[in-house]
Design a protein around this nucleic acid. Structure first.
Lengths: 159, 159
DNA sequence: TTCTTATTCGCACGACTTGCTAATTAGGTT
DNA sequence: AACCTAATTAGCAAGTCGTGCGAATAAGAA
């Protein structure tokens, strides 16, 4: 995603208006590597601009996605998460706490799907599933105790 | 996923009951490579067993997932899709029509995430995004005409 | 056949996201 | 500086997907 300043210019050049709400969201998303949900962004935004609408957050995120400034990440379960990182990268997900980490991956260029001649491939996404060190520790103590989640809320496996 | 007969045995050995609803769903899912949603499975099931409940379809799919007989696939947008294929495989998605195809992928063993020492990786999923030949043809005719979908319903990119 | 317990069904509810629209505002124009 | 108009916002209703719950039912053992 471009800087807030660059986005301001991009917006104006497209006939879009530069509102305080948008400017705030530009700031909150720029360089943000937390892969926030709309709700969590809304919470942050509200802290700085009480009264901002969740609807506006969704709207702005959709605009930015249309403009190619960010990506949607759907990795099972809950809400869509947003990623302003436009570099060639992939994701690692902790199946316990749900955190998502950006990673560069070696070897993606060599990936070859077998037997899909009738598809024009445009993009490849790699998702690693694992357990982060923090969750690994809490697992050691409480064996499976509080970690059994319903299929719906736990990060789903999508091979 | 195992055959309906094998599943019947597995169910009984676990103290689960073998109901007609479950047996039907075993049949519908066995060898199914369409990656159906709960709704579409429900539709098929209803054709053969009017009165079967959507609730039961969800319940049975969750059971099968718990038993490791199938996977959830969440590739952006709409409903969860179910995959009874337990082989080591990955997926190709048509961003136009949303169809999902199973594929074997060469080179996955060589994939190396960079800089995530604090993660224990258990699984890797690869998703190719592209356009199937059918959609490619219709694109050639009607340029973008009916293919502009809202971000929400179109297959989302998850790098 | 009887009994116990799992299962089914259907509705209400919850999470997430979008549709709709009146009121407001950004930003160009006079 | 005041004005104009299209874009935007806010907020609530509604839609989609999936689950919680409880009464009625049925599987399978005794």
């Amino acid at each position: 995603m471009q800087t807030p300043t660059e986005l301001a210019a991009a917006y104006r050049s497209q006939g879009r208006k530069l509102t305080p709400q948008r400017q705030l969201l530009f700031q909150l998303m720029h360089g943000n590597d937390k892969h926030p949900t709309a709700e969590s962004l809304f919470a942050e935004a509200t802290a700085q601009m009480p009264g901002i609408s969740l609807r506006t957050v969704y709207q702005t995120l959709n605009e930015l996605a249309e403009m190619g400034e960010l990506q949607f990440i759907d990795i099972g379960g809950g809400a869509t998460r947003f990623d302003p990182n436009l570099d060639d990268h992939h994701h690692v997900v902790c199946v316990d706490c749900g955190q998502i980490r950006d990673v560069h991956v070696n070897g993606t260029a060599a990936l070859k799907p077998v037997g899909i001649e009738d598809f024009t491939i445009n993009d490849v996404g790699v998702v690693f599933q694992g357990v982060c060190s923090t969750c690994e520790k809490s697992r050691a103590k409480s064996h499976k105790t509080a970690h059994a989640k319903s299929p719906a809320q736990q990060a789903k496996i999508s091979k």
